[in-house]
Design a protein around this nucleic acid. Structure first.
Length: 454
RNA sequence: GAGAGAGUAGCUCAGUCGGUUAGAGCACCAGGUUGUGGCCCUGGGGGCCGGGGGUUCAAUUCCCCUCUCUCUCCCCA
C-alpha cells in the first residue's frame, strides 16, 4: 500500500486564500467594532471541550449531538469534542471563572471556527465560522431585544439590508410541560400521519415535530396547538416586552409560532434571521434565551442568559448575492526597480529602510526586465517607482517616478526616504480631496432613476 | 445518511460519435520600445483531460470504483 495521492484539504474544509482573507478581515473588523460599540467584550474558549459539555448542554436527542460531532479520545481516554457551537463553551467558561460572582451582567462575544460533520454544500461546511454574543446574568427582556438589535446592527454595518427576523417563544421550565402534554395529546391523534422520525420524536422531543419539514408532518400538525397560546403569565409578559422593544426601534419581525431551535437549551425567546438570497441554507443567525443551560452543564443554579450565533460564510454569501463589494487589494506605495546586480543590492537595503519607515514596498526578487518590473508596479497600483541603474549608481541618485502622472525626478540616496514620505503624504491628501470618505452617510439624492438608459 | 449533476491549462470553458501534435478567452513570460507601467501587435511557456482499475489493437472519450465540488432532501449558522 504505497498510495501516494496528493494531499488536500479534507471534505467540508477549505483554504481562505489571499484575495478572500482581506474580505474576511474587513468583515471581522466590522463585527469587532460593533461589538465594542455595544460594549461586548471578546472571549476565546478552546476549540475542543469535554464531550459532556455538548451532550448535556445541546441535548442528547439533537442532530448535532447524535450525528454531527467530531468526537475523539485523547491519550488519557477522555472523550473530547471539537466545538459544534459557541454558547455552551462560553457558559462553561463563565461558570468556571465565576465571571458573574459580583452579581454583574456579563456581555461577551466570540468569533471563530465551529465543527460539524454534515454533508457539505453551499452555505454549509464541516469547519465553518460563527460569531456570537451572549448576555449572561439577567432575564430582562431588554437583554433579549439588545441581542437581536446587536446582530442587526452588525448586518447593517456590513451593508446587508435584506433579511427577515422571525421570533418566537418556547415558554419556560414552568409552562413547557403543560404545553408539551397538550401537544402530545394532539399529536397522538395524528400519529399515523407522521414520518418515522417524528414518531420517534414523540418519545424524545415532541416539540421538534412542529419543525419537521416533511410534507405529511406539516399537514398533520397544521392545526396543532401553538406554544404561544399556552405560555404562562411570566413568559407571556416577557415575550410581549421583547416584541414591544423591537417595535419601538421600528424593527420588522414575524412572530413564528412554530420556531423551534435545534438545540435543547433554549427557553422563552428564540429567533432567527433569514436571508432571502441564500436558497436552502437561508439562516444567517439563530439565537435565544437559555436560562437553564448553566445548570444543565453542572452549575449549581439557574443562570439567565440570552445570545445569538451567526454564520460568517453565509453572511459572506448573502453579501455577495446582494452585490456588496468587500474586496480590496493590499496597498502598495512604492515599487523598487533595478537595472543590474549592483543596483539590485543597493535597492534591497533601501527597500527595508523604507519599510521600516512605514512605506509599503515591493521589490523584484527575480531578475526580470525593467519593463516587467514596471508592469508589476502598475499591477499593484504603486504610487511611486524608484528606479536605479548604472547611471544612478554613478551619480549617487535615485530616479523617483510618480506613476500617477508619469513625472520623474532625480533624488540623492541621502534624501530619498524623506522625499518619498513627502510625496506619498501629498498624493494621499490629493486622493482624499478627490474622493471624500463616505462615512458622512449623507445621501445626496442624485441616484439615477431606474430604467433610465442611454 | 439518501438522491441528482459535474471534474479538461493558474481561472472560465470548448472538444474528442474511442484513433496520430487536446483548443479558445483571460492570466503569465518575452519581443516590438539599447533603462520605464497601462493600450496595441507578434511570439512563447504551461495539461498524468481528478485518481485507480476494467474493456479494447488503441481510452481524456465507454464501464466500474474512489476522491472532490455543486444542487436537493434532512438539519442547522
Amino acid at each position: 500500500m504505497t498510495e501516494n495521492r496528493s494531499l488536500q484539504s479534507i471534505r467540508g474544509t477549505r483554504d481562505l486564500l489571499p484575495g478572500e482573507t482581506e474580505a474576511w478581515d474587513v468583515v471581522e473588523g466590522i463585527i469587532r467594532e460593533v461589538m465594542g460599540i455595544y460594549q461586548y467584550r471578546e472571549i476565546r474558549t478552546p476549540l475542543f471541550e469535554d464531550t459532556q459539555l455538548f451532550t448535556r448542554g445541546i441535548g442528547e436527542h439533537t442532530d448535532i449531538v447524535n450525528k454531527e460531532m467530531y468526537t475523539f479520545e485523547d491519550q488519557g481516554g477522555r472523550s473530547l469534542t471539537l466545538r459544534p457551537e459557541g454558547t455552551a463553551s462560553v457558559v462553561r467558561s463563565w461558570l468556571q471563572h465565576r465571571l458573574g460572582a459580583q452579581g454583574t451582567v456579563n456581555k461577551l462575544y466570540y468569533l471563530g471556527p465551529m465543527f460539524r460533520q454534515e454533508a457539505p454544500q453551499k452555505g454549509r461546511a464541516r469547519q465553518f465560522h460563527q460569531f456570537g454574543a451572549e448576555v449572561i446574568g439577567t432575564d430582562a427582556p431588554e437583554a433579549d431585544a439588545e441581542i437581536i438589535l446587536l446582530v442587526l446592527a452588525v448586518l447593517d454595518a456590513l451593508g446587508l439590508e435584506t433579511w427577515a427576523l422571525h421570533i418566537g417563544s418556547l415558554g419556560c421550565r414552568e409552562c413547557r410541560p403543560g404545553y408539551r402534554d397538550i401537544l402530545v395529546e394532539f399529536l397522538a391523534g395524528v400519529e399515523s400521519l407522521l414520518c418515522e422520525e417524528c414518531k420517534e420524536r414523540m418519545k424524545t422531543n415532541p416539540l421538534r415535530i412542529l419543525d419537521c419539514k416533511n410534507e405529511g408532518c406539516r399537514l398533520a400538525t397544521a392545526k396543532a396547538p401553538s406554544h404561544l397560546d399556552h405560555l404562562d403569565e411570566g413568559c407571556q409578559i416577557h415575550f410581549n416586552a421583547v416584541q414591544a422593544l423591537l417595535s419601538d426601534r421600528g424593527i420588522p419581525f414575524t412572530v413564528d409560532p412554530r420556531l423551534v431551535r435545534g438545540l435543547d437549551y433554549y427557553e422563552r425567546t428564540t429567533f432567527e434571521v433569514l436571508s432571502p438570497d441564500l436558497g436552502a441554507q437561508d439562516a444567517i443567525c439563530g439565537g435565544g434565551r437559555y436560562d437553564g443551560l448553566a445548570q444543565m452543564i453542572g452549575g449549581s443554579d439557574r443562570v439567565p442568559g440570552v445570545g445569538f450565533a451567526a454564520g460568517i460564510e453565509r453572511i459572506m454569501l448573502a453579501l455577495e448575492a446582494a452585490g456588496v463589494e468587500l474586496d480590496f487589494e493590499p496597498i502598495c506605495d512604492v515599487a523598487l526597480v533595478h537595472i543590474g546586480e549592483a543596483a539590485r543590492q543597493r535597492l534591497f537595503a533601501l527597500c527595508d529602510i523604507l519599510r521600516r519607515a512605514g512605506v509599503a514596498c515591493t521589490i523584484e526578487l527575480f531578475d526580470r526586465s525593467v519593463k516587467a518590473q514596471m508592469r508589476e508596479a502598475n499591477r499593484r497600483e504603486a504610487l511611486l517607482a524608484l528606479i536605479v541603474g548604472e547611471n544612478e549608481l554613478k551619480d549617487g541618485m535615485v530616479t523617483v517616478k510618480n506613476l500617477v502622472d508619469g513625472e520623474e525626478e532625480q533624488v540623492s540616496f541621502e534624501d530619498v526616504v524623506s522625499v518619498v514620505l513627502e510625496k506619498l503624504e501629498k498624493m494621499d491628501d490629493e486622493a482624499v480631496d478627490e474622493e471624500p470618505q463616505d462615512w458622512s452617510e449623507e445621501d445626496d439624492g442624485s441616484e439615477p432613476e431606474p430604467g433610465e438608459a442611454a
